[in-house]
């Protein structure tokens, strides 16, 4: 329902993270979206072009990794991924899953970028991303 504002938030966070880098092009943005996040892939893809227009992310692709709900089942002694969100019972033993370990994610995982000129090879290195992240976010 509010995928456009989510798209704008992604653009704003990604732009902040890219500050100070000589970015030639952002190829793609990888998001992790849980089944319980309430966010749908199609409307988000639909909004992406509009939200990135005139920004560093213009022309980039949006890659969405869906995360199913995973519950911890005590009787089975296992963590079990669920097929959908119509029941939170363990599919093996039927015990209601009181502990949800995964499925609420709504996060930016990474950006695939091409940096300008000589920096082209260091661009994909991940080790230096920590210190370049704006403080406080």
């Amino acid at each position: 329902m509010h995928e456009l504002s989510i798209a704008y938030s992604v653009v704003s966070s990604a732009t902040e993270a890219l500050a100070g880098r000589k970015v030639a092009k952002v190829d793609s943005v990888l998001l992790r979206v849980g089944a319980l996040s309430g966010i749908m892939e199609d409307p988000l893809q639909f909004c992406w072009g509009l939200a990135t227009e005139g920004t560093l992310l213009a022309g980039s692709g949006l890659v969405i990794e869906r995360v199913p709900v995973t519950i911890r089942c005590r009787p089975c002694g296992q963590d079990v991924a669920l097929d959908g969100v119509q029941s939170f019972r363990c599919p093996r033993c039927g015990t209601p899953g009181l502990e949800v370990l995964k499925g609420r994610e709504l996060e930016i995982v990474s950006l695939e970028i091409e940096e300008d000129g000589d920096d082209a090879h260091s661009g994909v290195a991940t080790g230096d991303s920590e210190k370049e992240r704006p403080a406080g976010g």
């Binding site: 989510i6 938030s9 992604v10 966070s13 990604a14 993270a17 890219l18 998001l31 709504l106 996060e107 930016i108 995982v109 990474s110 950006l111 695939e112 970028i113 661009g123 994909v124 991940t126 991303s129 992240r133 976010g137």
Partner: peptide, 11 residues
């Protein structure tokens, strides 16, 4: 470039 940042982090 790794980010690992919640989209609703500000909220």
């Amino acid at each position: 470039m790794e980010l690992r940042q919640g989209i609703l982090k500000k909220n």
